[in-house]
């Protein structure tokens, strides 16, 4: 029952950073209690979560675009049906997450407008183009694989609605990764040309996927408080390392080469990657990636072209409501 309307009673004292309440709050977090929408929380906790959950939601929604690009050109009906279902899932994930973000007191309209105006960010990865069918396989295998690494710990996040949304998302994400890997297996067992297409897609996506986990731990801005609040359970570098170690044997299975000739295995068996080009990451976040403008333009167009539908639905609902009221009065 996470409605903004219900939160209005304690709306005023929410802004007050009461020291005693803040320490009580931290004690609840330390005891692994879940925080629920109507509970008292520090304003900074609310703000951090609103930003994180809404960015996550925007990412799911914008993430429909690179894959949607291939629905009409999928190589078989089976692939097409699977891709369509996957893109529909991404939409569903966006909607669960928006609903979770709204419980913190920001309306859906404000959240969406933040994304459309370019003020709110979404994951850097969706600003890269999907040039071939192998990109669809690579996105499922690597992008969804990376997302799972990041999202599984979020199922235990201190904020109840976010954790619950992540549980649903993770259940569905596993299908995404497996359908992507299956595409890769098929391509890699196909003709030399198909295998080259798979390698080319891996070459283009590998580094942007590593960047998905965010800046290295020494420079990550939000990590300390997020860890203290149990929003984040593992650091960016820890998750990145887990992902690489899980992915290397999969690439070997496919017979593909990870495009990092300097990558070495350390004494613990972990694969140490070469330096990441963080300038590219900053550029993409700043709006200068290969597809940033296209993505925002596509979202704005869809939003504007859907406006009449939303208005018509509301007008119809109003009309029916007033007709019912008039009938009741007779």
């Amino acid at each position: 029952m996470y409605t903004q309307a219900l939160n209005s009673s304690d709306g005023d004292d929410r802004r007050v950073e009461d020291v005693a309440r803040a320490s009580q709050f931290q004690a609840r977090i330390d005891a692994d209690e879940r925080i629920e929408p109507n509970d008292w929380m520090p304003a900074a906790y609310r703000k951090t979560l609103t930003r994180q959950i809404s960015q996550h939601a925007h990412s799911e929604i914008v993430g429909m675009l690179p894959e949607g690009n291939w629905i009409t050109r999928a190589p078989s009906l089976r692939r097409k049906a699977a891709l369509l279902a996957k893109v529909q899932d991404e939409c569903g994930h966006g909607l669960y997450l928006y609903a979770a973000a709204e419980t913190l007191g920001t309306s859906r309209e404000e959240l969406v407008d933040g994304m459309l105006s370019g003020k709110a960010k979404y994951s850097s990865i969706f600003n890269y183009p999907t040039l071939t069918w192998a990109d669809i396989g690579t996105i499922g295998w690597l992008v969804d694989g990376a997302a799972i690494m990041n999202q599984i710990p979020l199922c235990r996040c201190s904020y109840g609605p976010y954790a619950r949304a992540m549980i649903r998302v993770c259940k569905e994400e596993s299908f995404h990764q497996r359908q992507g890997f299956e595409i890769m297996v098929t391509l890699c067992r196909g003709t030399a040309e198909q295998k080259a297409m798979a390698q080319n897609a891996l070459d283009r996506w590998w580094w942007p996927v590593l960047m998905m986990f965010g800046p290295p731990d020494q420079v990550s801005q939000h990590s300390d408080t997020s860890t203290k609040w149990k929003i984040k359970r593992f650091s960016n570098d820890e998750l990145r390392q887990k992902f690489i170690d899980a992915t290397v044997p999969q690439a070997e299975f496919l017979g593909l080469t990870i495009p990092d000739p300097g990558m070495k295995q350390n004494e613990n068996g972990s694969w140490v990657h070469s330096p990441i080009d963080w300038d590219e990451f900053k550029q993409v976040l700043a709006g200068n990636g290969p597809c940033n403008r296209d993505r925002l333009a596509a979202r704005r167009k869809a939003h504007e072209e859907g406006a009449w539908v939303r208005e018509a639905a509301m007008a119809y609902a109003e009309k029916r409501k007033s007709r019912q009221l008039a009938q009741a009065a007779e």
Binding site: S107, R108, V112, L116, H303
Partner: peptide, 11 residues
Amino acid sequence: MATPNVPLWEV
């Protein structure tokens, strides 16, 4: 760009 507030439902 603002859109009308569409009612919220619990499922």
